[in-house]
Amino acid sequence: MAAAAAAGAGPEMVRGQVFDVGPRYTNLSYIGEGAYGMVCSAYDNVNKVRVAIKKISPFEHQTYCQRTLREIKILLRFRHENIIGINDIIRAPTIEQMKDVYIVQDLMETDLYKLLKTQHLSNDHICYFLYQILRGLKYIHSANVLHRDLKPSNLLLNTTCDLKICDFGLARVADPDHDHTGFLTEYVATRWYRAPEIMLNSKGYTKSIDIWSVGCILAEMLSNRPIFPGKHYLDQLNHILGILGSPSQEDLNCIINLKARNYLLSLPHKNKVPWNRLFPNADSKALDLLDKMLTFNPHKRIEVEQALAHPYLEQYYDPSDEPIAEAPFKFDMELDDLPKEKLKELIFEETARFQPGYRS
Protein backbone atom coordinates (compact mmCIF):
# COMPACT_ATOMS: atom_id res chain seq x y z
CA MET A 1 0.00 0.00 0.00
CA ALA A 2 1.37 3.40 -0.97
CA ALA A 3 1.64 5.91 1.80
CA ALA A 4 -1.02 8.59 1.63
CA ALA A 5 0.40 11.65 -0.06
CA ALA A 6 0.43 14.72 2.11
CA ALA A 7 -1.55 17.57 0.58
CA GLY A 8 0.52 19.19 -2.15
CA ALA A 9 3.30 16.61 -1.83
CA GLY A 10 3.11 15.68 -5.53
CA PRO A 11 2.26 12.37 -7.14
CA GLU A 12 2.13 9.13 -5.16
CA MET A 13 4.34 6.16 -6.01
CA VAL A 14 2.89 2.65 -6.20
CA ARG A 15 5.31 -0.26 -6.71
CA GLY A 16 7.79 2.00 -8.45
CA GLN A 17 5.15 3.60 -10.69
CA VAL A 18 4.15 7.25 -10.54
CA PHE A 19 0.42 7.73 -10.01
CA ASP A 20 -0.26 11.42 -10.67
CA VAL A 21 -3.92 11.66 -9.66
CA GLY A 22 -3.97 14.15 -6.77
CA PRO A 23 -5.24 16.19 -5.13
CA ARG A 24 -8.71 14.67 -5.66
CA TYR A 25 -7.59 11.02 -5.43
CA THR A 26 -5.36 9.95 -2.53
CA ASN A 27 -4.51 6.91 -0.35
CA LEU A 28 -3.60 4.65 -3.25
CA SER A 29 -3.51 0.88 -2.90
CA TYR A 30 -2.28 -1.59 -5.55
CA ILE A 31 -4.88 -3.94 -7.10
CA GLY A 32 -3.15 -5.48 -10.12
CA GLU A 33 -1.85 -4.84 -13.60
CA GLY A 34 -2.70 -5.68 -17.19
CA ALA A 35 -0.81 -5.64 -20.47
CA TYR A 36 -0.24 -1.89 -20.48
CA GLY A 37 -1.16 -0.44 -17.14
CA MET A 38 -1.55 -0.74 -13.39
CA VAL A 39 -4.82 -0.60 -11.43
CA CYS A 40 -5.06 0.90 -7.94
CA SER A 41 -7.84 1.76 -5.58
CA ALA A 42 -7.90 5.33 -4.28
CA TYR A 43 -9.98 7.60 -2.06
CA ASP A 44 -12.08 10.14 -3.99
CA ASN A 45 -12.02 13.24 -1.79
CA VAL A 46 -14.99 14.80 -3.64
CA ASN A 47 -17.49 11.92 -3.57
CA LYS A 48 -16.03 10.42 -0.36
CA VAL A 49 -15.79 6.86 -1.72
CA ARG A 50 -13.00 4.56 -2.81
CA VAL A 51 -12.66 4.16 -6.58
CA ALA A 52 -10.57 2.14 -9.03
CA ILE A 53 -7.99 3.99 -11.15
CA LYS A 54 -6.40 2.39 -14.18
CA LYS A 55 -3.13 3.96 -15.36
CA ILE A 56 -2.66 3.39 -19.10
CA SER A 57 0.54 4.21 -20.98
CA PRO A 58 -0.36 3.21 -24.54
CA PHE A 59 1.34 5.78 -26.73
CA GLU A 60 4.34 3.71 -27.83
CA HIS A 61 2.16 1.09 -29.56
CA GLN A 62 -0.49 1.49 -32.25
CA THR A 63 -2.45 -1.54 -30.95
CA TYR A 64 -2.56 -0.23 -27.36
CA CYS A 65 -3.65 3.21 -28.62
CA GLN A 66 -6.46 1.58 -30.60
CA ARG A 67 -7.66 -0.44 -27.63
CA THR A 68 -7.52 2.57 -25.32
CA LEU A 69 -9.44 4.78 -27.74
CA ARG A 70 -12.07 2.06 -28.36
CA GLU A 71 -12.60 1.50 -24.65
CA ILE A 72 -12.90 5.23 -23.88
CA LYS A 73 -15.18 6.01 -26.85
CA ILE A 74 -17.54 3.14 -26.06
CA LEU A 75 -17.68 3.48 -22.27
CA LEU A 76 -18.27 7.24 -22.40
CA ARG A 77 -21.34 6.64 -24.58
CA PHE A 78 -22.71 3.62 -22.71
CA ARG A 79 -24.86 3.99 -19.60
CA HIS A 80 -26.02 0.75 -18.02
CA GLU A 81 -26.01 -0.83 -14.55
CA ASN A 82 -24.28 -3.99 -15.81
CA ILE A 83 -21.51 -2.20 -17.72
CA ILE A 84 -18.62 -0.47 -15.96
CA GLY A 85 -18.73 3.29 -16.52
CA ILE A 86 -16.02 5.93 -16.61
CA ASN A 87 -16.36 8.46 -13.78
CA ASP A 88 -13.35 10.64 -14.58
CA ILE A 89 -10.26 10.73 -16.79
CA ILE A 90 -7.03 12.43 -15.74
CA ARG A 91 -4.33 13.38 -18.22
CA ALA A 92 -1.81 16.17 -18.87
CA PRO A 93 -3.19 19.51 -20.13
CA THR A 94 -1.25 19.40 -23.42
CA ILE A 95 -0.83 16.61 -25.96
CA GLU A 96 2.98 16.93 -25.78
CA GLN A 97 2.93 16.31 -22.00
CA MET A 98 0.41 13.47 -22.21
CA LYS A 99 2.34 10.25 -21.54
CA ASP A 100 -0.31 8.44 -19.48
CA VAL A 101 -4.08 8.40 -19.10
CA TYR A 102 -5.76 7.61 -15.77
CA ILE A 103 -9.29 6.18 -16.01
CA VAL A 104 -11.40 6.40 -12.84
CA GLN A 105 -14.18 3.81 -12.40
CA ASP A 106 -16.37 2.33 -9.68
CA LEU A 107 -14.41 0.06 -7.37
CA MET A 108 -15.61 -3.55 -7.58
CA GLU A 109 -14.32 -6.03 -5.00
CA THR A 110 -13.53 -8.95 -7.28
CA ASP A 111 -14.23 -10.59 -10.64
CA LEU A 112 -15.79 -13.89 -11.71
CA TYR A 113 -12.39 -15.44 -12.52
CA LYS A 114 -11.13 -14.88 -8.95
CA LEU A 115 -14.46 -15.98 -7.46
CA LEU A 116 -14.51 -19.28 -9.40
CA LYS A 117 -10.98 -20.07 -8.21
CA THR A 118 -12.13 -20.07 -4.60
CA GLN A 119 -15.88 -20.76 -4.47
CA HIS A 120 -18.45 -23.19 -5.78
CA LEU A 121 -21.52 -21.19 -6.85
CA SER A 122 -25.08 -22.08 -5.87
CA ASN A 123 -27.69 -22.35 -8.63
CA ASP A 124 -29.20 -19.06 -7.38
CA HIS A 125 -25.88 -17.25 -7.82
CA ILE A 126 -25.30 -18.77 -11.26
CA CYS A 127 -28.79 -17.72 -12.36
CA TYR A 128 -28.39 -14.15 -11.06
CA PHE A 129 -24.91 -13.67 -12.53
CA LEU A 130 -26.01 -15.07 -15.91
CA TYR A 131 -29.05 -12.77 -15.93
CA GLN A 132 -26.88 -9.70 -15.33
CA ILE A 133 -24.36 -10.72 -18.02
CA LEU A 134 -27.18 -11.09 -20.56
CA ARG A 135 -28.88 -7.88 -19.41
CA GLY A 136 -25.65 -5.95 -20.05
CA LEU A 137 -25.07 -7.78 -23.33
CA LYS A 138 -28.59 -6.88 -24.54
CA TYR A 139 -27.63 -3.20 -24.21
CA ILE A 140 -24.24 -3.72 -25.91
CA HIS A 141 -25.80 -5.60 -28.83
CA SER A 142 -28.62 -3.04 -29.15
CA ALA A 143 -25.89 -0.45 -29.76
CA ASN A 144 -24.65 -2.68 -32.60
CA VAL A 145 -21.43 -3.39 -30.72
CA LEU A 146 -19.73 -6.76 -30.23
CA HIS A 147 -17.69 -7.10 -27.03
CA ARG A 148 -15.54 -9.94 -28.47
CA ASP A 149 -13.66 -10.68 -25.25
CA LEU A 150 -16.23 -11.87 -22.72
CA LYS A 151 -14.57 -14.10 -20.12
CA PRO A 152 -14.75 -14.46 -16.32
CA SER A 153 -11.97 -11.92 -15.60
CA ASN A 154 -13.91 -9.25 -17.55
CA LEU A 155 -16.97 -9.63 -15.29
CA LEU A 156 -16.53 -7.47 -12.19
CA LEU A 157 -18.43 -8.28 -8.98
CA ASN A 158 -19.05 -6.68 -5.61
CA THR A 159 -20.20 -8.10 -2.28
CA THR A 160 -23.87 -7.50 -3.09
CA CYS A 161 -23.49 -9.69 -6.23
CA ASP A 162 -23.82 -6.79 -8.66
CA LEU A 163 -22.06 -7.65 -11.92
CA LYS A 164 -20.52 -5.25 -14.44
CA ILE A 165 -18.99 -6.09 -17.82
CA CYS A 166 -15.61 -4.42 -18.42
CA ASP A 167 -12.75 -4.21 -20.94
CA PHE A 168 -14.07 -3.01 -24.27
CA GLY A 169 -10.61 -2.75 -25.83
CA LEU A 170 -11.40 -5.45 -28.44
CA ALA A 171 -14.98 -4.33 -29.10
CA ARG A 172 -16.14 -3.69 -32.66
CA VAL A 173 -19.17 -2.30 -34.42
CA ALA A 174 -21.03 -5.35 -35.76
CA ASP A 175 -20.43 -5.63 -39.47
CA PRO A 176 -21.33 -9.05 -40.88
CA ASP A 177 -20.58 -7.96 -44.47
CA HIS A 178 -17.17 -6.43 -43.96
CA ASP A 179 -14.30 -8.82 -44.53
CA HIS A 180 -11.85 -7.95 -41.79
CA THR A 181 -8.63 -9.02 -43.41
CA GLY A 182 -6.06 -10.09 -40.87
CA PHE A 183 -8.92 -10.76 -38.47
CA LEU A 184 -7.29 -13.81 -36.94
CA THR A 185 -3.90 -12.18 -36.51
CA GLU A 186 -5.31 -9.20 -34.61
CA TYR A 187 -7.84 -11.33 -32.76
CA VAL A 188 -6.13 -11.76 -29.42
CA ALA A 189 -9.21 -12.57 -27.35
CA THR A 190 -8.74 -15.48 -25.00
CA ARG A 191 -8.92 -18.69 -27.03
CA TRP A 192 -11.00 -20.70 -24.56
CA TYR A 193 -14.05 -18.45 -25.00
CA ARG A 194 -13.78 -18.12 -28.79
CA ALA A 195 -16.65 -19.23 -31.01
CA PRO A 196 -15.79 -21.97 -33.52
CA GLU A 197 -16.63 -19.74 -36.51
CA ILE A 198 -13.82 -17.36 -35.51
CA MET A 199 -11.34 -20.17 -36.06
CA LEU A 200 -13.01 -21.39 -39.24
CA ASN A 201 -13.93 -18.21 -41.14
CA SER A 202 -12.41 -14.80 -41.50
CA LYS A 203 -15.38 -13.08 -43.11
CA GLY A 204 -17.38 -10.79 -40.90
CA TYR A 205 -18.58 -11.51 -37.41
CA THR A 206 -21.90 -11.29 -35.69
CA LYS A 207 -23.35 -10.91 -32.21
CA SER A 208 -23.50 -14.69 -31.87
CA ILE A 209 -19.77 -14.78 -31.01
CA ASP A 210 -20.57 -13.07 -27.68
CA ILE A 211 -23.38 -15.55 -26.96
CA TRP A 212 -20.90 -18.42 -27.41
CA SER A 213 -18.59 -16.79 -24.85
CA VAL A 214 -21.49 -16.43 -22.39
CA GLY A 215 -22.23 -20.15 -22.87
CA CYS A 216 -18.60 -20.96 -22.01
CA ILE A 217 -18.91 -18.75 -18.90
CA LEU A 218 -22.15 -20.49 -17.82
CA ALA A 219 -20.45 -23.90 -18.19
CA GLU A 220 -17.54 -22.63 -16.08
CA MET A 221 -19.90 -21.38 -13.36
CA LEU A 222 -21.49 -24.86 -13.26
CA SER A 223 -18.20 -26.72 -12.81
CA ASN A 224 -15.50 -24.22 -11.73
CA ARG A 225 -13.37 -25.16 -14.72
CA PRO A 226 -13.21 -23.97 -18.34
CA ILE A 227 -15.23 -26.18 -20.67
CA PHE A 228 -12.95 -25.87 -23.73
CA PRO A 229 -9.37 -25.31 -22.48
CA GLY A 230 -7.61 -25.63 -25.86
CA LYS A 231 -3.81 -25.37 -25.88
CA HIS A 232 -3.74 -23.98 -29.43
CA TYR A 233 -6.00 -23.25 -32.39
CA LEU A 234 -6.65 -26.84 -33.56
CA ASP A 235 -6.75 -28.21 -30.03
CA GLN A 236 -9.47 -25.63 -29.30
CA LEU A 237 -11.60 -26.92 -32.18
CA ASN A 238 -11.02 -30.52 -31.09
CA HIS A 239 -12.19 -29.69 -27.54
CA ILE A 240 -15.38 -28.15 -28.94
CA LEU A 241 -16.15 -31.05 -31.30
CA GLY A 242 -15.29 -33.55 -28.54
CA ILE A 243 -18.33 -32.29 -26.60
CA LEU A 244 -20.69 -30.95 -29.30
CA GLY A 245 -20.03 -33.86 -31.66
CA SER A 246 -19.37 -33.63 -35.40
CA PRO A 247 -21.15 -30.78 -37.19
CA SER A 248 -24.04 -31.69 -39.50
CA GLN A 249 -23.80 -31.25 -43.27
CA GLU A 250 -25.99 -28.14 -42.96
CA ASP A 251 -23.63 -26.67 -40.36
CA LEU A 252 -20.62 -27.45 -42.55
CA ASN A 253 -22.23 -25.60 -45.45
CA CYS A 254 -22.03 -22.37 -43.42
CA ILE A 255 -18.24 -22.57 -43.40
CA ILE A 256 -17.01 -20.45 -46.29
CA ASN A 257 -13.35 -21.31 -45.84
CA LEU A 258 -12.83 -24.51 -47.87
CA LYS A 259 -9.63 -25.49 -46.10
CA ALA A 260 -11.44 -25.32 -42.76
CA ARG A 261 -14.43 -27.25 -44.11
CA ASN A 262 -12.20 -30.00 -45.54
CA TYR A 263 -10.34 -30.26 -42.24
CA LEU A 264 -13.63 -30.87 -40.40
CA LEU A 265 -14.71 -33.43 -43.02
CA SER A 266 -11.44 -35.33 -42.55
CA LEU A 267 -12.04 -35.90 -38.82
CA PRO A 268 -13.54 -39.15 -37.51
CA HIS A 269 -17.22 -38.91 -36.53
CA LYS A 270 -17.84 -37.86 -32.92
CA ASN A 271 -21.10 -38.17 -30.97
CA LYS A 272 -22.41 -35.34 -28.84
CA VAL A 273 -21.81 -35.72 -25.09
CA PRO A 274 -25.09 -35.19 -23.14
CA TRP A 275 -24.89 -32.03 -21.00
CA ASN A 276 -26.25 -33.85 -17.93
CA ARG A 277 -23.33 -36.26 -18.12
CA LEU A 278 -20.89 -33.33 -18.04
CA PHE A 279 -22.85 -31.44 -15.35
CA PRO A 280 -24.80 -34.08 -13.38
CA ASN A 281 -25.80 -31.69 -10.58
CA ALA A 282 -26.91 -28.78 -12.76
CA ASP A 283 -30.44 -27.41 -13.10
CA SER A 284 -32.04 -28.93 -16.23
CA LYS A 285 -33.25 -25.50 -17.39
CA ALA A 286 -29.69 -24.16 -17.10
CA LEU A 287 -28.49 -27.02 -19.31
CA ASP A 288 -31.22 -26.34 -21.87
CA LEU A 289 -30.09 -22.70 -22.13
CA LEU A 290 -26.44 -23.81 -22.24
CA ASP A 291 -27.25 -26.06 -25.19
CA LYS A 292 -28.87 -23.16 -27.06
CA MET A 293 -25.84 -20.89 -26.44
CA LEU A 294 -23.17 -23.49 -27.26
CA THR A 295 -24.60 -24.29 -30.68
CA PHE A 296 -21.97 -24.87 -33.38
CA ASN A 297 -23.87 -23.04 -36.12
CA PRO A 298 -23.94 -19.28 -35.34
CA HIS A 299 -27.20 -18.88 -37.31
CA LYS A 300 -28.95 -21.35 -35.00
CA ARG A 301 -27.44 -20.00 -31.76
CA ILE A 302 -29.87 -18.26 -29.40
CA GLU A 303 -29.91 -14.43 -29.40
CA VAL A 304 -29.61 -12.30 -26.28
CA GLU A 305 -33.32 -11.35 -26.04
CA GLN A 306 -34.38 -14.99 -26.40
CA ALA A 307 -31.82 -16.03 -23.79
CA LEU A 308 -33.19 -13.48 -21.30
CA ALA A 309 -36.71 -14.86 -21.89
CA HIS A 310 -35.59 -18.47 -21.30
CA PRO A 311 -37.39 -20.32 -18.44
CA TYR A 312 -34.10 -20.62 -16.50
CA LEU A 313 -34.11 -16.84 -15.95
CA GLU A 314 -37.86 -16.36 -15.43
CA GLN A 315 -37.53 -15.10 -11.83
CA TYR A 316 -35.52 -12.10 -13.08
CA TYR A 317 -36.82 -11.56 -16.62
CA ASP A 318 -38.44 -8.14 -17.02
CA PRO A 319 -38.19 -6.63 -20.52
CA SER A 320 -39.33 -3.23 -19.18
CA ASP A 321 -36.23 -3.17 -16.94
CA GLU A 322 -33.75 -4.39 -19.56
CA PRO A 323 -32.85 -1.14 -21.31
CA ILE A 324 -31.38 -0.78 -24.78
CA ALA A 325 -29.04 1.88 -26.18
CA GLU A 326 -30.57 5.11 -27.46
CA ALA A 327 -28.89 4.78 -30.85
CA PRO A 328 -26.60 2.34 -32.63
CA PHE A 329 -22.93 3.06 -32.07
CA LYS A 330 -20.86 4.29 -35.00
CA PHE A 331 -17.12 4.67 -35.25
CA ASP A 332 -16.41 7.59 -37.57
CA MET A 333 -13.46 5.72 -39.01
CA GLU A 334 -11.82 2.32 -38.96
CA LEU A 335 -9.11 2.69 -36.30
CA ASP A 336 -7.03 -0.27 -37.45
CA ASP A 337 -5.23 1.73 -40.12
CA LEU A 338 -4.47 4.92 -38.19
CA PRO A 339 -0.91 5.70 -37.02
CA LYS A 340 -0.34 5.97 -33.27
CA GLU A 341 0.22 9.75 -33.53
CA LYS A 342 -3.30 10.24 -34.94
CA LEU A 343 -4.75 7.87 -32.31
CA LYS A 344 -3.04 9.93 -29.59
CA GLU A 345 -4.74 13.07 -30.93
CA LEU A 346 -8.10 11.31 -30.88
CA ILE A 347 -7.55 10.10 -27.29
CA PHE A 348 -6.60 13.67 -26.31
CA GLU A 349 -9.83 15.04 -27.85
CA GLU A 350 -12.01 12.25 -26.45
CA THR A 351 -10.78 12.94 -22.88
CA ALA A 352 -11.04 16.75 -23.06
CA ARG A 353 -14.45 16.86 -21.37
CA PHE A 354 -12.87 15.93 -18.02
CA GLN A 355 -10.36 18.80 -18.09
CA PRO A 356 -10.91 21.75 -15.71
CA GLY A 357 -12.75 24.60 -17.43
CA TYR A 358 -13.85 22.45 -20.39
CA ARG A 359 -16.47 24.02 -22.67
CA SER A 360 -18.09 21.78 -25.27
Rank of each mutant, 00 (worst) to 15 (best):
residue 58 P to K: 15
residue 261 R to W: 12
residue 171 A to R: 05
residue 260 A to P: 09
residue 67 R to N: 05
residue 174 A to G: 09
residue 38 M to G: 13
residue 175 D to M: 10
residue 168 F to V: 01
residue 3 A to V: 13
residue 255 I to D: 06
residue 345 E to A: 01
residue 199 M to P: 06
residue 87 N to H: 09
residue 198 I to S: 12
residue 318 D to H: 11
residue 299 H to T: 13
residue 328 P to G: 01
residue 353 R to N: 04
residue 103 I to L: 12
residue 115 L to Q: 14
residue 243 I to H: 09
residue 88 D to I: 05
residue 319 P to W: 01
residue 332 D to T: 04
residue 98 M to R: 06
residue 340 K to T: 06
residue 197 E to G: 01
residue 34 G to V: 14
residue 284 S to F: 12
residue 348 F to W: 04
residue 24 R to P: 10
residue 153 S to N: 12
residue 243 I to G: 03
residue 44 D to W: 02
residue 55 K to R: 14
residue 146 L to K: 05
residue 41 S to T: 13
residue 267 L to K: 05
residue 123 N to H: 06
residue 281 N to S: 00
residue 232 H to S: 00
residue 261 R to F: 05
residue 280 P to Q: 12
residue 146 L to A: 09
residue 154 N to T: 14
residue 135 R to S: 13
residue 34 G to L: 08
residue 259 K to G: 08
residue 195 A to Q: 09
residue 285 K to L: 13
residue 341 E to H: 12
residue 79 R to E: 04
residue 184 L to V: 04
residue 270 K to F: 05
residue 64 Y to L: 15
residue 347 I to A: 08
residue 52 A to I: 06
residue 33 E to F: 02
residue 211 I to Y: 12
residue 351 T to Q: 06
residue 116 L to P: 11
residue 239 H to G: 13
residue 267 L to A: 04
residue 334 E to M: 00
residue 329 F to C: 00
residue 73 K to H: 07
residue 36 Y to K: 14
residue 74 I to M: 00
residue 191 R to F: 06
residue 188 V to L: 10
residue 162 D to Q: 02
residue 18 V to F: 12
residue 253 N to C: 04
residue 337 D to H: 11
residue 268 P to M: 06
residue 114 K to Y: 12
residue 130 L to W: 05
residue 259 K to Q: 12
residue 110 T to H: 09
residue 92 A to Y: 07
residue 22 G to Q: 06
residue 7 A to N: 03
residue 127 C to V: 14
residue 52 A to G: 13
residue 39 V to D: 02
residue 144 N to D: 00
residue 210 D to N: 12
residue 161 C to R: 01
residue 38 M to L: 15
residue 280 P to K: 04
residue 69 L to I: 05
residue 190 T to R: 09
residue 19 F to L: 15
residue 218 L to D: 02
residue 34 G to S: 02
residue 167 D to Q: 08
residue 329 F to T: 04
residue 218 L to T: 12
residue 341 E to D: 15
residue 24 R to E: 05
residue 299 H to K: 06
residue 9 A to Y: 04
residue 99 K to P: 02
residue 132 Q to C: 07
residue 349 E to H: 07
residue 218 L to I: 07
residue 329 F to H: 03
residue 64 Y to D: 13
residue 28 L to G: 01
residue 19 F to E: 09
residue 120 H to T: 08
residue 225 R to M: 04
residue 44 D to S: 05
residue 83 I to F: 14
residue 283 D to P: 04
residue 282 A to K: 02
residue 256 I to N: 14
residue 323 P to A: 03
residue 120 H to G: 08
residue 330 K to V: 04
residue 183 F to M: 08
residue 108 M to F: 07
residue 9 A to S: 13
residue 209 I to Q: 12
residue 330 K to C: 02
residue 54 K to V: 11
residue 152 P to N: 08
residue 297 N to G: 03
residue 189 A to N: 09
residue 329 F to L: 14
residue 255 I to P: 07
residue 32 G to Y: 02
residue 266 S to M: 07
residue 103 I to G: 05
residue 55 K to S: 11
residue 229 P to L: 10
residue 344 K to S: 09
residue 338 L to A: 06
residue 226 P to D: 06
residue 259 K to D: 08
residue 130 L to D: 01
residue 54 K to R: 13
residue 322 E to K: 13
residue 316 Y to N: 15
residue 280 P to D: 05
residue 281 N to H: 11
residue 122 S to D: 02
residue 214 V to N: 03
residue 238 N to Q: 04
residue 354 F to T: 07
residue 109 E to N: 04
residue 148 R to F: 12
residue 163 L to E: 01
residue 13 M to L: 15
residue 329 F to Q: 09
residue 324 I to G: 04
residue 219 A to M: 08
residue 282 A to Q: 02
residue 126 I to G: 06
residue 296 F to T: 09
residue 144 N to R: 04
residue 236 Q to G: 08
residue 260 A to K: 02
residue 113 Y to S: 10
residue 323 P to Q: 06
residue 51 V to T: 09
residue 306 Q to M: 10
residue 165 I to M: 01
residue 187 Y to R: 04
residue 329 F to E: 02
residue 78 F to A: 02
residue 95 I to E: 04
residue 282 A to R: 11
residue 263 Y to N: 15
residue 168 F to M: 10
residue 300 K to G: 10
residue 297 N to L: 08
residue 178 H to R: 12
residue 314 E to R: 06
residue 235 D to N: 13
residue 56 I to S: 15
residue 334 E to T: 02
residue 45 N to G: 13
residue 252 L to K: 10
residue 185 T to E: 10
residue 308 L to N: 01
residue 185 T to K: 10
residue 221 M to R: 12
residue 104 V to T: 02
residue 203 K to P: 11
residue 69 L to K: 02
residue 331 F to G: 00
residue 172 R to W: 03
residue 262 N to I: 15
residue 86 I to C: 03
residue 205 Y to K: 08
residue 74 I to W: 00
residue 289 L to H: 01
residue 122 S to W: 04
